[in-house]
């Protein structure tokens, strides 16, 4: 039981990280990014190449992967997203789905469909409060918490406040001398790095495959929906709750029930509390 909860928290941390990346981009640029997981999967495979075939140190490979993640996000933002930024969600959803498929295809072309294992330095297990916990699980959960706290601090910083101002109103901040494009770039680059962390953690705890992104991006969106899409803590708690609920359903009901949890969660939340468990209502414009 408690082992199930810990595995749930581990998977939940990946969902939460993906949700945080999605919320960050949505908050700043109002783009629901369905390519978010693929934008992290490509750099995660780069890390595998560095650690595996090229035999570099893990501690060198991870920063390199993060830089690649940020660069890829900047590229996608500049080439694909900025031309359609003024359009409706209808257009941006289609554009990010196109990016999702295209980036996934490139990943497949480079690394094929063979599952890879990343040799991470986190082996063995530790005992916390009488409970045996894998080091890998501790790392996942710890990374999730750290990124969430980091984002909370970030949103209170100067650039973070500018970002939220731009999300509300694109014109006034510009008049006050805020560079909207700079804020967009920073938010996309940060989100790209967070997505890289999520895909890396999932890849090194289980297997790294070209299919990982498709699964995780939906979970990330569900977690963000639970959290109401505007709150960092909401998205984080939503991710953890989804992970734990999935694991318990898988354990107590059946493995097929596990895959239904995410859908059930999204239907229930969107029907009963469309702004999420932590979101606030907003007036609709005609």
């Amino acid at each position: 039981m408690s082992q199930q909860i810990i595995s749930g928290l581990q998977a939940g941390s990946w969902y939460a990280l993906m949700a945080l990346a999605i919320v960050l981009v949505l908050k700043a640029t109002d783009v629901p990014n369905f390519a978010m997981a693929e934008m992290g999967l490509f750099p995660a495979f780069c890390i595998w190449t560095l650690v595996g075939p090229l035999e570099q140190s893990y501690w060198l490979a991870v920063p390199a992967g993060l830089i690649i993640g940020a660069a890829l996000a900047l590229l996608v933002e500049r080439v694909a997203i900025r031309p359609v930024l003024a359009e409706s969600h209808f257009t941006t959803v289609l554009m990010t789905i196109a990016m999702f498929v295209a980036i996934n295809a490139v990943t497949q072309l480079v690394w094929g469909s063979v599952p890879r294992t990343i040799d991470s330095p986190f082996g063995g297990s530790v005992t916390v409060a009488g409970q045996v916990v894998d080091a890998e699980q501790l790392v996942s959960i710890g990374a999730g918490v750290a990124v969430m706290l980091g984002l909370l601090v970030f949103f209170r910083s100067r650039i973070g406040v500018q970002m939220q101002a731009i999300a509300e109103d694109r014109v006034t901040p510009r008049l006050l001398g805020v560079s909207v494009n700079r804020v967009f770039r920073i938010s996309w680059a940060l989100a790209g790095m967070i997505a890289t962390v999520a895909m890396l953690l999932q890849g090194q705890a289980s297997l790294l495959t070209d299919q990982n992104g498709a699964g995780l991006v939906i979970k990330g969106f569900v977690a963000a929906t639970l959290g109401g899409f505007s709150s960092v803590t909401g998205a984080f708690v939503g991710g953890l709750a989804l992970g734990v609920a999935e694991n318990l359903a898988g354990d107590f009901i059946s493995t097929s029930a596990k895959s239904a949890v995410a859908l059930l969660a999204i239907v229930v939340v969107l029907t009963l509390k469309p702004r999420g468990l932590f979101g606030r209502a907003r007036a609709r414009e005609v």
């Binding site: 969600h89 939906i218 239904a260 999204i266 969107l270 029907t271 469309p274």
Partner: peptide
């Protein structure tokens, strides 16, 4: 039924999640 209350990308998420579920059902 739930989706008529949703707009924009919320609907995209809900229907994408549903498509995933249908795929699982085809497998199971």
């Amino acid at each position: 039924l739930p989706a008529t209350r949703l707009r924009g990308f919320y609907l995209a998420i809900a229907t994408l999640a549903f498509a995933e579920l249908m795929l699982r059902i085809f497998i199971e």
